[in-house]
């Protein structure tokens, strides 16, 4: 027995190791199953999957990559939050500062490219689920959860786009959020809004419509920056994390990765 092995054994027999990992070394079928089942993160997986299902050519690993990118975004995002203040006076300067003064100034790059990559990965994941017909029973519900995740991912990207507070940011968000103006009934330029009156007072105008709710103002300004920041850093990621957990749980409950019946 080499020194390496004996140290390994010593560590694994210690009380500390045993208190963290409840199973033996994953070397046989039982302990390997235990390794997955007794770990809160791993047990989101099924214990066993179809051999054909985990081939790269079947899933393209796209669901997993989407999740990994979500994690990478979370980690780099939290680090960015240490430096960035969502206030019009500081936001742009903080982004410059990140590039100029912060060690490992790659954070913002990783965060931005990761966001783009996540959008691509989630589309391709959806494409593969569609093309393998994996949305068919019993997986209809998980497909629906996926669609919501897709919307959340796009919203995450969209809300993050504003935060650097440069020309690219405010005008892209202006173009995007202008759509809310035209929401039927709820936007002040949308069909039906002109019919919403209480007595003589119009209910829906530029200062009360869907776009105002989104931006916290009539234009992309300080209110919008704060709202987008909160949505981007707290609200959407939390909802997405919960839904991803649900998504994985259902992959497992629906019989692991799909295959011919």
């Amino acid at each position: 027995m080499s020194l390496f092995d004996s140290v390994g054994n010593y560590v694994r027999q210690s009380q500390i190791w045993g208190s963290v990992f409840r199973h033996g070394v994953p070397r046989d079928r039982r302990t390997r199953a235990m390794a997955v089942l007794s770990n809160v993160f791993l047990h989101l997986h099924p214990v066993a999957v179809r051999k054909s299902g985990i081939r790269l050519s079947f899933t393209w690993c796209m669901g997993g990559l989407t999740f990994f990118l979500f994690l990478a975004e979370t980690i780099t995002g939290v680090l960015l939050m240490f430096y960035y203040r969502p206030v019009v006076e500081y936001a742009y300067a903080d982004i410059i500062g990140l590039r100029a003064h912060v060690t490992l100034g790659l954070l913002r790059e990783i965060h931005r490219w990761g966001a783009h990559a996540m959008v691509i990965a989630i589309w391709l994941h959806m494409l593969r689920v569609f093309l393998t017909g994996s949305y068919k029973p019993p997986r209809e519900f998980n497909w629906s959860v996926g669609v919501i995740l897709l919307v959340l991912t796009l919203l995450l990207s969209f809300t993050g786009y504003l935060l650097p507070w440069d020309q690219l940011a405010i005008w892209a968000i202006t173009v995007g959020s202008n759509m809310a103006r035209a929401t039927p009934v709820l936007g002040h330029e949308g069909p039906g809004a002109a019919m919403m009156f209480v007595g003589e007072v119009p209910l829906i105008h530029a200062g009360s419509d869907a776009r105002f709710l989104l931006l916290g103002g009539t234009a992309v300004g300080p209110g919008a920056l704060l709202r987008f920041y909160v949505l981007h850093c707290i609200f959407i990621p939390l909802v997405a994390a919960v839904l991803i957990a649900l998504h994985f749980w259902r992959v497992r409950k629906d019989g692991a990765i799909s295959g011919p019946l």
């Binding site: 390997r32 099924p46 066993a48 999957v49 179809r50 051999k51 054909s52 690993c61 990559l65 019946l261």
Partner: peptide, 22 residues
């Protein structure tokens, strides 16, 4: 290509390692 529903493999190590590499 995908047939052979019975030959299931354990997630540990087959999938977990693929995930790690990815």
């Amino acid at each position: 290509i995908e047939s052979g529903a019975d030959d299931k493999v354990l997630v540990w190590p087959d999938l977990v390692y693929t995930e790690l590499i990815a």
